[in-house]
């Protein structure tokens, strides 16, 4: 057996309380416990985090770049979802 067989884990780190976990990178590890320990050593050597998630890369489902345009198209023509779409009369404040 060798590391050739170890699965890939994606690492998410919460930099400090009040912030979300953000993707930091990935690593190979035989199990979740080792993945967490390795993630601590690899991605938080300088106090970059207060909490870590590790997720098997194979468990993540993602949209594909090929269908990027059709997939996100529905949002493209709805500019009325942005506040800048609306006209506000001169002098009206706090709106």
């Amino acid at each position: 057996m060798s590391t050739r067989d170890w699965p890939l884990w994606e690492v998410f780190v919460r930099a400090r309380r009040g912030l979300s976990h953000v993707h930091s990178g990935s690593l190979h590890a035989p199990d979740a416990e080792m993945a967490l320990r390795n993630a601590r050593d690899l991605y938080t050597r300088r106090g970059e985090g207060v909490s870590i998630w590790v997720v098997r890369a194979s468990d993540i489902e993602a949209s594909t770049p090929d269908e990027r345009d059709p997939f996100f198209d529905p949002a493209a023509d709805k500019i009325y979802r942005h506040p800048t779409f609306y006209e506000v009369p001169e002098g009206v404040e706090h709106l």
């Binding site: 993707h23 990935s26 690593l27 993602a62 594909t64």
Partner: peptide, 12 residues
Amino acid sequence: MYGNDFGSDQAA
């Protein structure tokens, strides 16, 4: 890492 894009192996 840094955003492996997570397609199935089949897609690859």
